[in-house]
């Protein structure tokens, strides 16, 4: 198993973002280390997906900088931006596989667009990635012929086509049954530990967080900031913010979870 390195691969500095003039996330900063499984938590509307979309360069923040592998994705243009985008892989909530292509063609697509590999090499690499997620027997299936869990795994295979150092997953367990969700967790953990891939995951699944996340941050919709950072178990037991404790211990009432009823928010 490869260790988590003690140097940041992603640095978010004084990041503020929002839509149509209204601020959703206000001046937050954090770092993610190489080889870490990092989870972004928060209630609905707290800006988790917004943060993720800014980190992968889809949107421009109002202020702040986001360094991926030492390069600022906010200001990067041309070849530098392409270089950053090649070093990351992204999977979306619904998988976002291209419905008109087979699984193999989906995974081959980044190789076709970004490399000069011959066709048989691209086929072999795409099959390697599909095999890694347990989908090689389905390489000529269309996405619509697969279950939700298989589509998510295929999306991970596609995101890994160019061997990125960082994988961003937006709600990977959304809509999956507990068994499929646990399988996906195992896959993420295997990839993180064996291939030293850094994972940044936006999720609501508390069971997944306990299993896979090395560290989490929690965003809060009201204060628009990070209200907790740390290992999931530590936060569950020792968080001072009652709302954080209630979020991580959903069976416990606010009074039991903290001294007040969300007063610290």
């Amino acid at each position: 198993m490869l260790p988590i390195e003690n140097r940041p691969i992603i640095q978010v500095q004084h990041f503020t973002a929002g839509y149509d003039g209204s601020v959703v996330i206000d001046d937050i900063s954090f770092e993610i280390y190489r080889g870490e499984v990092f989870a972004i938590l928060g209630g609905s509307g707290s800006g988790k997906s917004t943060l993720l979309k800014h980190m992968i360069g889809l949107y421009q923040p109002m202020t702040g900088r986001i360094f991926i592998g030492g390069k600022d994705i906010v200001t990067a243009e041309g070849d530098e931006r392409t270089g950053i985008l090649k070093s990351i892989g992204v999977t979306y909530q619904m998988g976002a596989l291209f419905g008109s292509m087979t699984l193999l063609e989906n995974v081959r697509l980044p190789l076709e667009e970004y490399t000069a590999l011959p066709s048989d090499a691209m086929d072999l690499i795409a099959r390697m990635k599909l095999k890694l997620v347990g989908l090689e027997p389905f390489l000529d299936y269309m996405p619509s012929e697969l279950s939700g869990g298989m589509q998510k795994r295929a999306a991970i295979a596609r995101a890994m086509a160019l061997d990125p150092h960082i994988l961003f997953l937006d709600e990977p367990s959304a809509g999956l049954d507990p068994i499929t969700s646990a399988e996906l967790d195992r896959l993420i953990l295997d990839l993180a530990r064996n291939l030293a891939i850094t994972f940044v995951i936006v999720t609501h699944e508390l069971s997944s967080i306990d299993t896979i996340a090395d560290r989490v941050i929690m965003l809060d919709k009201v204060v628009k900031k990070i209200v907790a950072t740390g290992r999931p178990q530590e936060l569950r037991e020792h968080a001072t913010n009652p709302w954080v404790r209630q979020f991580l211990n959903p069976g416990v009432s606010a009074e039991t979870a903290g001294k007040g009823t969300g007063g610290e928010r």
Binding site: L2, L124, M128, L132, E136, D140
Partner: peptide, 16 residues
């Protein structure tokens, strides 16, 4: 380690 992970793949494409 990477070779061990991917090594058991066949270069022949399985029948579809």
């Amino acid at each position: 380690r990477l070779l061990d992970i991917y090594g058991d793949i066949s270069i022949n494409r399985p029948p579809g």
